[in-house]
Amino acid sequence: MGERNELRLSGTGGQGLILAGIIIADAAIRDGKNSIQSQSYGPEARGGASRSEVIIGDEDIDYPKVNKPDVLLVMSQEACDKFAADIEQGGVMIVDTTYVHTLPEINGAVVYKIPISMTAKEEIGKEIVANVVALGAIARITGVVSREALTEALLARIPKGTEELNRKALEAGWALAETVLH
């Protein structure tokens, strides 16, 4: 079996995580890989929780859902409480400390705590781009997609006139990840 990554991006509705998942999946295709993106709706959707799942691989992807993510982004306390236990052994968990204050004990996964939404709000001036900050951080930390492909995919899917804002947000996420990697 070739290289395979399963990502779950979770938080609250309105944080733009569905679009973030689409952009990662698109970037993976631009990298020449196979990818699949789905939204999972369960009873938790009623609580306002949102999750977007992406599988990236070199081979065919049969079952399209993610049960044990090896990359887990949590951008709300509710999402963290719900999904932290699902993480795959050896996986990576990225926590937005703006909204997640209590972390359960995580065994067998590396946890990166970064203020994603705060960075979007204070450095970029618009919290709405928190999802793009998260994309930059995910790409830098996990390397699941190339920076070049991610930038292309991002620019292909955002409203005209917001290119500069989004580029800055991606850059800020990348830099934010550097602070915890070194």
Partner: peptide, 9 residues
Amino acid sequence: EVIGHLREK
């Protein structure tokens, strides 16, 4: 719904 909303290559 799965196939309707699924995005793939």
